[in-house]
Write a protein that binds this DNA or RNA. Sequence first.
DNA 1: ATGCCGTGGAAACCACGA
Length: 259
Amino acid sequence: MRIATYNVNGINGRLPVLLRWLSETTPDIVCLQELKAPQEKFPEQAIADLGYEALWHGQKSWNGVAILSRVGSISEVRRGLPGDPEDEHSRYLEADVAGIRVCCLYLPNGNPAPGPKFEYKLRWFDRLNDHAAELLRIDMPVILAGDFNVMPTDKDVYKPERWQEDALFRPEVREAFKSLVEQGWTDAIRTFYPDEIIYTFWDYFRNAYGRNAGLRIDHFLLSPQFDGRLVAAGVDREVRGWEKTSDHAPVWIDVLDNL
DNA sequence: ATGCCGTGGAAACCACGA
């Protein structure tokens, strides 16, 4: 079973790219981020025409997350992280699909740091870690997938020295990611490729994609039920080279599905 | 390397992204 995550950077603006990628790679379950569309403007029919059921949490202009499935129905568990009823951003969607608890997340960017946006990011990360600890207790394989807006280590940044003060790389954020993983999660991409340089995002300017000046910020964290069942993983990096494409590339894992 | 590109939304600029 292939599970993918893709920050589309505007689902309607990128619809041809999304549909082409879905058609060519036929992932079974997909987590999408940055829909940038209100609830009523999600392109449900175009996605259904390719055989996908969809669950989404939209928001006008910003954020927005969705889960797609072509392997059975999507049973919503929650939208929004617990811990802050004042948080209106559409950044988290959790559902059961094909016996897997799928958690699609779009962690706040947090720039400029320091500042209120960075504080929001750190609070959001704390809430995620609290909720993730609870998820490890359920009797079900769990996947946390999405745009974490964190480069976990120096290896995940083309020029780490330039990113030290950035909200995606500051020590507090890397530390939050580290303590999340240490709860018992597996960083699937890094585990599968311990030494390679792997990026999932390239800026639009300065020819970042052409120079491979990228970042690894889209991640899969797997609960222990997946141990020994991760059979392949990768980044569809050529999608980043298509016309009118997102600044992120899709990331995927293949897992044995007899869990 | 300071948003140089790109999106959505409101109103021909702005907020936001990483």
